[in-house]
């Protein structure tokens, strides 16, 4: 992988690690941006890792653009040798798939969809060669997902499925973006799933909804008191399919301030993961449930 650098005007350096998404490209971006943070380079104001790229914002009155570029290139090539192991967290996200709210919304915007006569779940199941909605939900929720980027809007995680490429779920975005998406919708576009942190426009297929808030600008939710956004790049997510009574109970728990998400510390090795993906994922799930 040879990183491609470009200036984004006079205040940004944009670095594309690879054109295609892969865990290798994501890890490299994560390592380089960590190294940039640790280097405490004068004049650097924002350090943003993304899926297979990263971006550094800077003040050219404090550091010459060419000097910063040279420093970034050095950190970028030094990270080639980093062992791909990270200390991170695994977080369980309950999901009510096929819920009434995203269903109402997807029906409202049906004329903007590839398949006006079905639902997003039926469409995604079909184009991924899966036998119906239940098989699709199983495929979506059985393996964990990496938070490979946080952004678009406040606290929104992009999630990359931790399976071999041929098993990865893919789906195009809507033909034309919707003007509305329920808050906490679990969506999917390209090879990425996401959780919409706020209500608003969106173009991803809609599969379900989580009762668990991931962004709270008022910082009243117990686990968002320290910081208003739950996710960081490098977090691992495991979906847990739930039914309507469990969803309603979780919403009531959130409202009453007693909802406690399952979040565990874990270390992740890309090499071990690649050696036996299914076995490694079972191990991760074991960590989540305290085995």
């Amino acid at each position: 992988m040879q990183t491609r650098f470009s200036y984004g005007g006079d205040e940004h350096i944009f670095a594309e690690v690879a054109e295609s998404m892969s865990l290798e490209a994501f890890f490299k971006g994560l390592f380089v941006t960590n190294a940039v943070r640790d280097a405490r380079i004068k004049g650097v104001t924002e350090i943003c890792p993304a899926n297979a790229s990263y971006q550094v914002k800077f003040d050219p009155d404090q550091i010459k653009p060419d000097d910063l570029l040279a420093e970034l290139k050095q950190l970028d090539s030094a990270s080639e040798t980093s062992a791909p192991v990270i200390k991170t967290r695994i977080i369980e996200i309950p999901v009510l798939y096929n819920d009434p709210w995203t269903h109402e919304t997807l029906m409202r915007f049906r004329e903007r969809h590839q398949d006006p006569n079905g639902t997003d779940l039926e469409y995604a199941a079909r184009i991924n060669g899966l036998d119906g909605v239940d098989a699709f939900i199983k495929a979506h929720s059985s393996a964990p997902w990496f938070v490979s980027m946080v952004g678009f809007v406040a606290g929104l995680p992009f999630l990359y499925q931790m399976v071999e490429r041929q098993r990865q779920i893919q789906a195009p975005k809507y033909l034309r973006p919707r003007t509305d998406t329920p808050k906490l919708t679990v969506g999917h576009g390209g090879c990425f799933s996401c959780i919409y942190s706020v209500r608003g426009a969106g173009g991803y297929q809609m599969f379900g909804i989580t009762p668990m808030p991931i962004y709270d600008p008022n910082q009243k939710i117990s686990y968002l008191r320290d910081f208003m956004c739950l996710f960081k790049p490098g977090d691992i997510v495991k979906w847990k399919p739930i039914d309507r009574p469990a969803y309603d109970a979780a919403v009531a728990d959130v409202d009453a301030g007693r909802f406690a998400p399952i979040i565990r510390d874990v270390s992740f090795s890309l090499t071990e993961f690649n050696n036996d993906i299914d076995a490694y994922n079972r191990k991760l799930e074991g960590v989540l449930h305290g085995n």
């Binding site: 940004h12 690879a18 295609s20 899926n51 971006q55 980027m149 195009p172 975005k173 090879c191």
Partner: peptide, 20 residues
């Protein structure tokens, strides 16, 4: 590229600079 999407204007989702 894998992850980018089929439209020629698509890229693998990346950061957007201010003013981009």
């Amino acid at each position: 590229p894998f992850g980018a999407g089929s439209d020629p204007s698509n890229i693998t989702d990346a950061c957007y600079p201010y003013g981009s």
